[in-house]
Design a protein around this nucleic acid. Structure first.
Length: 799
DNA sequence: GACCTCGTTTCTCGCCTATT
DNA sequence: AATAGGCGAGAAACGAGGTC
């Protein structure tokens, strides 16, 4: 089946890409979501596949999640009729992780386009080197803004796999994304970085008039909390502590409290109650049973404890309201009710059926909100049935009715900071300017009505503990990443969503990118949107031109402006004068690709090995080795009550410990006062000086003994420290601003350092004085100082 | 489960300025 | 002259995501 012709903007994109390739540059196309990026890519791929000459070369299409891989592979196969498209990720093709170079070469001989996961392909091209880049003609990076950070597999693949190898005819790189910036909101800078990494030119094409003009509404600042909200939260925290009183682990207590409060804060009382009953209590019960067993009498006492907790909690929580109007829900939830109700009404008038995604920050909130929405949609359904065939105008009387109710109940002046009239006006304007008829009264009124109904529905499903299968059909569901649900569960939810059975998904950022939902009519962002990129991506989930984007915390205007700035930044090069453009191309070509580990040149930043940092690393280390006490410091208490550091215990490769005395450690730094080292230190106390020196020496020794690398494989700070040591850019200063202007050489010269390290690792005889047991390797036994018994602090802790 | 990245939030430190 | 407090930068913690 022939493909439809390209749209003008796609033609332009294609032309621009090929032109850059001709000039020896790579290309990064910024094009809005849903304007046919993939189609442009297939056009380019066709060019590269050519007529199948003597030397067969392969096109890589790199994506960053498996879900996206499946989706794009299917799309490419459909558009590249007659070509062989294969997939490469994790376990597919079978055994490929152990394939030799020959095996890969022969496999690639059978492939035209290989759709692969960035992680997997980086491994094959860069780490094991089993795929030769010379076999590749083109590398397409999907969602290429990821390549804007050095360490991302896409960036590593491009840099180490291709750009740094000085190949005769290197494969071209084509980046595709709706936004060239990731977290960076300085778009010019983001552009520079990604251009440097990919040796490419970022450009964009104008899709105005083609892309769907989605309506963007924001409710920023329209949901004031009640005056007592803060106090309520604090009381709730106290109540929760009682409930957890029997939980085995202190950390768990804190964690569960935080989860619960987050739900209370973000959804209000009813969402919280539901979460408490259906999510937290089962967790507590499980924990208690794990700890105490499941004997009948124990179970009975656990049950008693939990139901008592529930009773008490209920008595307390029923008084909590997060808005100034006595609502059972958070003001944001009320807005959500209203928004969904509008969408639900529109559906009846021939619009596409309501199908939406709500993005939230935290899984707990997603979970609670999804259950609230489930109840809300059930209420809508029954409303519709109740309205019979009367064209769905059943809402009107109840709105009026609740308006009346509101005016009688709303007189208690709990309107928050602003006058209610001003607020009304603001909401009116917001709604009116978007063509949504509503007023604050009908809004609060109608939501109050839903309030009651939804709360009733929720409490019914709250007590229906087992009968899920016989309950109403699933209309709304939470979606989370791997940690929260299995791939299978998520896939099944997505399938049901596509088929229209599930009408609403409440998702964490897992759905932000890539996932194709053809006919989403509404996307809502419940929390603040972290970046412009997120905004663009979320917006992109609305594929329907009649669709709507609703922001609960962000200003739509602001977001749109940011988006425009992003586009402008992407367009600068393409629109510049020809000389400016040539100069730009030149500068892009000349930019050096930084190596790794990356330390900026010149005034660049080095590492920080501050006192605190040292202690953290050191304690982390101790924790990993399950040392007790966790801190390796020995402090002395003097008569004045002031503690001073007297020694430090350092683990050795044979599992023993050495005690370093202060004098030794200070001696190890050449006896130089710290003030000489750090000219900006004003008033560091004597103990701090000692601590600092001690820790520095200790961490040095750990490194020397290869212990950081071995024992702390998992520790980010230790790895970072190792890199920094090796790069020789560690300062021993306390502050942050000065870090990087010093290297080890600023503190010790090399010979001195070597002498000290040799001394300290027990090779030469230890310095005199009160050298306790020696930092000994196995062969050195008790150490040269003859003191057979290490002093108390150095007894073998450890396991 | 171990071990990664990414982005946000929080904390600390030093600089700078305004105030006492 | 000393000190308090605001500001900005860097680093780590945290909680999302991910792979193997």
């Amino acid at each position: 089946m022939p493909l439809p012709p390209l749209w003008p903007h796609q033609e332009e994109a294609k032309r621009e890409i090929l032109e850059r390739f001709e000039r020896g540059l790579n290309a990064f196309l910024v094009m809005e979501t849903n304007t046919g990026k993939t189609r442009v890519a297939t056009e380019i791929i066709q060019e590269f596949l050519g007529g199948g000459g003597t030397s067969h070369k392969v096109v890589l299409f790199v994506v960053h999640t498996e879900a996206l891989l499946q989706q794009q592979a299917a799309k490419l196969q459909a558009e590249l009729d007659g070509r062989t498209v294969k997939k490469f990720f994790g376990g597919e093709p079978k055994g490929s992780s152990e394939w030799s170079e020959q095996r890969w070469t022969s496999f690639l001989g059978t492939v035209d386009v290989l759709v692969c996961l960035s992680e997997s392909i980086r491994n094959a091209v860069v780490d094991t080197g089993s795929i030769q880049p010379s076999l590749l003609s083109l590398i397409v990076l999907d969602e290429a803004h990821y390549a804007g950070t050095e360490r991302h597999p896409m960036a590593v693949l491009a840099r180490r796999g291709v750009l740094e190898r000085n190949l005769e005819s290197p494969p071209r790189i084509l980046g595709l994304s709706a936004s060239h910036a990731g977290k960076q909101e300085d778009f010019e800078k983001a552009k520079e970085v990604v251009e440097k990494i990919l040796q490419c030119e970022v450009f964009t094409v104008d899709t105005t008039g083609f892309s769907a003009s989605r309506e963007v509404v924001s409710f920023k600042g329209l949901h004031p909390l009640s005056a007592t909200a803060d106090a309520d939260m604090r009381d709730a925290e106290q109540k929760l502590r009682d409930v957890w009183s029997h939980l085995p682990s202190r950390e768990d207590k804190q964690h569960q409290t935080d989860r619960a409060l987050e739900v209370l804060k973000e959804t209000g009382r009813e969402g919280f109650r539901f979460f408490f009953r259906r999510n937290l209590l089962p967790h507590v019960q499980k924990q208690l049973e794990t700890r105490f067993g499941t004997h009948t009498e124990i179970r009975a006492s656990i049950d008693a404890h939990l139901s008592e907790a529930t009773r008490e909690g209920n008595a307390f929580w029923s008084g909590v309201s997060m808005d100034g109007h006595g609502s059972k829900f958070h003001p944001k939830v009320q807005l959500l009710f209203h928004t969904l109700w509008q969408a639900w009404k529109e559906e009846k008038s021939g619009e596409p059926p309501l199908k939406g995604v709500i993005f939230v920050d935290k899984w707990e909130v997603a979970w609670a909100l999804a259950h609230i929405c489930q109840s809300l949609l059930c209420v809508f359904k029954s409303e519709r049935r109740g309205a019979g065939g009367t064209q769905g105008r059943g809402s009107e009387p109840s709105v009026r009715q609740s308006e009346a109710q509101n005016s009688s109940a709303g007189g208690d002046g709990e309107e928050g900071g602003r006058g209610s009239g001003e607020q009304d006006q603001e909401v009116d304007d917001t709604f009116a300017s978007r063509g949504i008829e509503a007023s604050i009264n009908s809004f609060y009124g109608s939501s109050h009505r839903f309030d009651r109904q939804v709360a009733q529905h929720l409490s019914r499903s709250e007590s229906a503990n087992t009968g899920d299968s016989s309950g109403p059909p699933l209309l709304a569901a939470p979606v989370g990443g791997r940690a929260k649900m299995s791939d299978r569960e998520r896939k099944s939810l997505m399938d049901n969503f596509r088929s229209g059975q599930i009408r609403l998904l409440v998702a964490t950022s897992v759905l932000e990118e890539g996932i194709d939902v053809q006919d989403c009519t509404i996307v809502m962002c419940y929390n603040r949107i972290p970046t412009t990129k997120s905004f663009i991506q979320m917006k992109g989930r609305v594929r329907n031109s009649a669709g709507k984007v609703v922001l609960f915390e962000d200003d739509a205007q602001e977001m749109r402006e940011a988006e425009e700035r992003m586009k402008e930044a992407a367009a600068t090069a393409a629109g510049a004068s020809s000389e400016g453009r040539d100069a730009h191309l030149q500068s892009v070509r000349q930019r050096r690709v930084p190596g790794y580990p990356y330390f900026p040149e010149g005034e660049g930043r080095g590492a920080q090995l501050s006192f605190d940092n040292c202690v953290k690393i050191f304690n982390e280390f101790a924790q990993k080795l399950q040392l007790s006490p966790p801190s390796l410091w020995q402090e002395e208490t003097t008569s004045s009550g002031k503690g001073g550091i007297v020694s430090l215990q350092v683990p050795t490769p044979n599992g023993k410990f050495k005690v370093l005395g202060v004098n030794e450690a200070v001696g190890a730094l050449g006896g130089r006062p710290l003030r000489d080292i750090d000219p900006h230190t004003k008033s560091r106390s004597a103990e701090e000086e000692k601590k600092c020196k001690l820790t520095w020496v200790a961490v040095r020794l750990l490194h020397q003994q290869d212990l950081l690398e071995k024992a702390l494989r998992a520790s980010g700070s230790a790895i970072a420290l190792k890199d920094k040591f090796e790069a020789g850019r560690v300062g021993v200063l306390g502050g942050t601003s000065l870090i990087g202007k010093f290297s080890l050489q600023d503190i010790l010269d090399e010979s001195e350092e070597n002498r000290l390290l040799a001394e300290w690792s027990g090779v030469s005889s230890a310095s005199a004085g009160e050298a306790e047991s020696v930092f000994s390797s196995d062969s050195q036994g008790g150490g040269p100082d003859g003191e057979g018994m290490p002093r108390e602090g150095s007894r073998e802790w450890g396991r």
